[in-house]
């Protein structure tokens, strides 16, 4: 690579999405899937993208790999920088090499994410051949190693299994092994545990965490469940109605959310502490993507909405590591303790 990194530019490494806007041309008019989304995943870092169903998490994840169906999807604006290159400018051949190579993605439903008519071994070897050129006995050996790495017992035997012969948790492990075949530097995991039992959920998440740490791989963990991101991710982005509304170090955001939406989401999340009190549900419903309200999109459901919120879009305000898009954010905990 002959490219010279600009001095001190951390952002040329890892992934940086800037101002991404995705629109779907539907029969009911244009639907906004992502709007001004800006997020960053540094090498080796685990980052969470959290939000309610339909807020645009999957759209964001899929646009990284340019996997959105076109039509109806259209990337209207923004840049997706990976190691300094804008992926939106890549040719389709370059993109294909990148997918499953430097960037891999796994999905929500492991039971339907594997081809039902091919063996696990066949699917692994096919992916290995594609990205590493390994074939034959060497590929077979590597495939077994990958299964071992994702902690599947008796890997040699499992290579000959068909997807339906495995449990959901095992299937998701196979998906992860497939994703690892191309030695990715970034793994996008779109709700990897939503379809699984709680105990298996924890195992898969700690597996992902171990793999990330061991391989120095970036991880973008997409989820609607705030309770699973603590301790497993270092930074957190909260998304609402196609926009990022808050970001910051996970611990800090969870301890003192600034955006009213994050606060509401946190109150609705089942955590050990809150379970006793019962869950609070956020009042109102998520607006459909083709009819987002003007101003702050959360204002119809916001307990603290002022007149201004209904017609003016709040700008992104950055305070150190943290940022939020709200006119009347909850003060930062330090400020609050000073006030009190």
């Amino acid at each position: 690579m002959s490219r010279i990194d600009p001095p001190g530019a951390e952002s040329t490494r890892g992934l940086a999405i800037e101002n991404l806007r995705v629109v779907f041309d539907t029969n009911e008019g244009p639907a906004v899937g992502a709007d001004g989304v800006t997020l960053e995943v540094r090498p080796g870092e685990a980052v969470a993208l959290v939000g309610e169903s339909g807020c645009g998490k999957t759209v964001t994840g899929l646009s990284i790999l340019r996997l959105l169906p076109r039509p109806p999807a259209r990337i209207e604006a923004g840049r997706i920088l990976f190691e300094g290159d804008d992926l939106l400018k890549f040719s389709s051949r370059e993109m294909r090499r990148l997918r499953g190579g430097k960037i891999a993605m796994i999905f929500q439903e492991p039971s339907v994410s594997l081809n039902p008519v091919l063996t696990i071994g066949f699917q692994l070897k096919e992916t290995l051949a594609l990205h590493t050129g390994l074939r034959g006995a060497v590929a077979e050996k590597r495939a077994a190693e990958l299964l071992e790495e994702v902690r599947i017992p008796e890997p040699r035997k499992r290579l000959r299994s068909y997807p339906h012969e495995l449990s959901g948790g095992m299937q998701q492990r196979v998906m992860i092994a497939l994703a690892l075949a191309g030695e990715p530097e970034l793994l996008v995991a779109d709700e990897p545990t939503t379809a699984l039992d709680v105990t298996i959920q924890a195992e898969i998440l700690s597996l992902l965490d171990d793999l990330r740490a061991r391989r120095g791989m970036g991880l973008l963990l997409i989820t609607h469940d705030l309770s699973i991101v603590a301790r497993r991710t270092s930074r957190l982005y909260v998304m609402y109605a196609a926009r990022i509304v808050e970001s910051g170090p996970t611990e800090d955001v969870l301890a003192s959310p600034r955006h009213p939406y994050t606060k509401a989401l946190l109150a609705a999340a089942p955590s050990r502490r809150r379970r006793a009190r019962g869950l609070e549900v956020i009042a109102g419903t998520v607006p459909p993507a083709n009819r987002y309200p003007s101003g702050c999109r959360f204002h119809p459901r916001c307990p603290r909405a002022h007149e201004r919120c209904s017609h003016e879009l709040p700008v992104w305000e950055k305070t150190g590591e943290r940022g939020t898009a709200c006119f009347y954010p909850e003060p930062l905990s330090e400020e609050r303790s000073v006030e009190e």
Binding site: L98, R99, F107, N115, A179, A181
Partner: peptide, 11 residues
């Protein structure tokens, strides 16, 4: 999903 997943793996 499995076709989507295959695409995501670079097929």
């Amino acid at each position: 999903p499995f076709v989507q997943a295959a695409r995501a793996l670079g097929a």
